[in-house]
Design a binder for these strands. Sequence first.
DNA 1: ATAATCGTAGACAAATCGAATCTACAATTA
DNA 2: TAATTGTAGATTCGATTTGTCTACGATTAT
Lengths: 146, 146
Amino acid sequence: MKFSKATNYALHTMLYLVAAPAGKSIGVRPLAEFQNVSPTYLSKILTQLVKAGLIASTPGVHGGYRLAKSKDAISFLDIIQAVEGTASLFECGPGHDAGFHEGCLIRSVMARAEDRMERYLQEQKLIDLVDRVDGHMLEFIRREAQ
Amino acid sequence: MKFSKATNYALHTMLYLVAAPAGKSIGVRPLAEFQNVSPTYLSKILTQLVKAGLIASTPGVHGGYRLAKSKDAISFLDIIQAVEGTASLFECGPGHDAGFHEGCLIRSVMARAEDRMERYLQEQKLIDLVDRVDGHMLEFIRREAQ
DNA sequence: ATAATCGTAGACAAATCGAATCTACAATTA
DNA sequence: TAATTGTAGATTCGATTTGTCTACGATTAT
C-alpha cells in the first residue's frame, strides 16, 4: 500500500501554487519542469484537481492554473482525495461478507484507523508550509512570478 | 492506495486463531475454506506471519497454525506490517529530493498522518472483537475445535 | 520403516494498476 | 487567423498483486 506518485506531484504543485502570488495563473510547463515530469502527464493529474474544485484552469496565451479557493481553505486531504479517490482503504471482500452480514468487525476497525489519518490530513494546510519552503523552490517561484 | 487482499486474509485468519481454543493448531485447509481462498496461497501469506513471530506452524498429521504470543499481545498493526511491510506510505521521489535537501516538508506531514493511523492500529487488539464475531464464524470454529 | 498428512519454497502465469507517452482537439487571446 | 495553452483518449510499458502448480521436507500414526 503506497500513495501514488500522482499524489506526490499534486501536493507539490499545490504547494507551488499556494506559495505563488495570489491570483496568478501558472502554466503546466514550469510546474512540470520543476518536478521533472512531463507536462501532459502533470496536466492529467491537475485536471483532477480542477474537477475537485481546488484549482481553475484557463487556456490561451497567458493561461495556466490558479487556485480556486482561498489559500487557507486547502487541506492535504482535499488534494489527496481528489487524486486517490475517497473509497475505503480496506475492503472486506465477498468471501468474508458472506460470513459477516451485519458488517465486518475488522473492516470497522480499519475504517476508524483510516479516519484518524484523514482527520489529521484535514487539519493540515499547505499555507502553513510556505514560509518554510527551501531556496530551490523559491527560486522557481520568483522566476515565474515576473 | 489500498490495503492488499493478503492483509484481509491475514487479519481474518488471525481473528479465527484468536477466537479458537488456546494452544490449538488449525490446518490451512479449514482456514482457507472459511475465506474461499486457495490453501497454498493462504499458506504463503501465513508464512509471513510465522516469520514475524505472530504464529507458529507444525507440519504433520495434526499440525497446522497456532498463536505464538498471548492473545492480548497481538495488534492490528503487527499483522498489517507483517504483510504490507513497514515502509512509509509516501515517498517524495528523486525529482523532489533535489529541491528539498533538508527533508521534504510535505513528506514530514504525510509521515505524521501515517503515524496517527498506526498508533490507533497498535492499540487495537483482535481479542477485543472475539466476543462479537457472528454465528457463521463461530460455527466454523466450533466444528474445528473438536 | 513407511505411508499419510501437512506446511514450505520456488517457478510460473494471469490480471490489475500505476506511470507515462503521444496525438488530436478545444478554447482563449494577441 | 495564428499562436498558445489546457483536455481527452488511446495506447504502451512496467511493476505489483493475486494466484496456481509442483516438488520437497518435516512430522506423526500405524
